[in-house]
């Protein structure tokens, strides 16, 4: 279970406060969606969950399976099952996708005290997962994300997620930039990972995605806090009325 308690976050180098007492619980087996206006702090929340530098937690705590993770290094969190599909995935020149996947998979397996995968095991595993996500195997021989289209980057994020077998999946606008067919493929990939041992947090601007990945709950994040929580229908409401109600509160 993911428990975010009264989380206050500011930028480390500036006075800007972004999250102002955010509280949220995602039990295992559930998928929660987060929606909210641009600049409301959705990506910040995702980064803070993953342990990116540059943010300072001034109050509150984040517990994953009962254990506080806010002091942990990003790779320790990854070993504990935290995975972030980035809104803007990074390019790594010169490092082939396969090398990256293999290094990451084995790094995580080692930290989880599992045996490292042999080359044939790894190749079989990656071929299978790539095929399911409609990812051309040739693309994995190219450097990570370099020259990838927006949609290709997002699909490659989901492939990494499938390979690393995380238990807490945070997806930051994975749907933006995807064409209709790709949206279906990616959603199928995400749905395939749904299970009683996984919790998922899906950040999106569009209720369309939630037709494919049906959430258990929808939260509205505005002005650094969860302003409203509801079921799937909340997304439809927002589509009609926008965020005026919540940003109004902020003003």
């Amino acid at each position: 279970m993911l428990e975010i308690k009264n989380l206050h976050v500011k930028l480390a180098d500036e006075d800007k406060v972004i999250l102002k007492g955010l509280t949220l619980t995602v039990p295992k087996g559930e998928v929660h969606a987060i929606m909210g206006p641009n600049g409301s702090g959705k990506s910040t929340l995702a980064y803070v969950l993953a342990g990116r530098e540059g943010y300072e937690v001034t109050d509150g705590d984040i517990l994953w399976n009962g254990e506080s993770i806010i002091e942990m290094e990003p790779d320790e969190r990854a070993a504990k099952g935290v995975f972030l599909a980035f809104q803007y995935p990074m390019e790594i020149p010169g490092v082939a996708g396969l090398t990256f996947l293999r290094t990451a998979t084995n790094a995580v397996r080692k930290k989880r005290e599992l045996t490292e995968m042999t080359t044939p095991e790894f190749m079989k595993f990656v071929k299978e997962k790539a095929a399911k996500l409609n990812i051309d195997f040739e693309m994995l021989k190219r450097p990570v994300n370099v020259g990838f289209s927006g949609g290709e980057k997002k699909r490659s994020e989901i492939l990494q997620m499938a390979m690393l077998e995380p238990t807490l999946c945070v997806l930051d606008e994975t749907d933006s930039g995807l064409d209709i067919d790709a949206l279906k493929v990616v959603s199928d990939g995400v749905n395939a990972l749904r299970g009683p041992d996984r919790a998922m947090l899906v950040i999106t601007h569009y209720q369309r995605l939630l037709n494919h990945i049906v959430p258990d709950k929808v939260h509205v994040l505005a002005d650094g806090r969860i302003q409203k929580t509801g079921g799937k229908e909340l997304a439809l409401e927002l589509e009609k009325s926008g965020y005026a109600e919540f940003t109004g509160k902020a003003a």
Partner: peptide
């Protein structure tokens, strides 16, 4: 870049492994 290192670390690599990977890519 910090972002590149963070990306690698998020995928389970230690900071040193991340540097080695990025540098090996740079000199490929």
């Amino acid at each position: 870049s910090d972002d590149m290192l963070f990306y690698c670390q998020q995928r389970g690599l230690s900071e040193e492994e991340a540097v080695a990977l990025v540098v090996n890519g740079f000199v490929r």
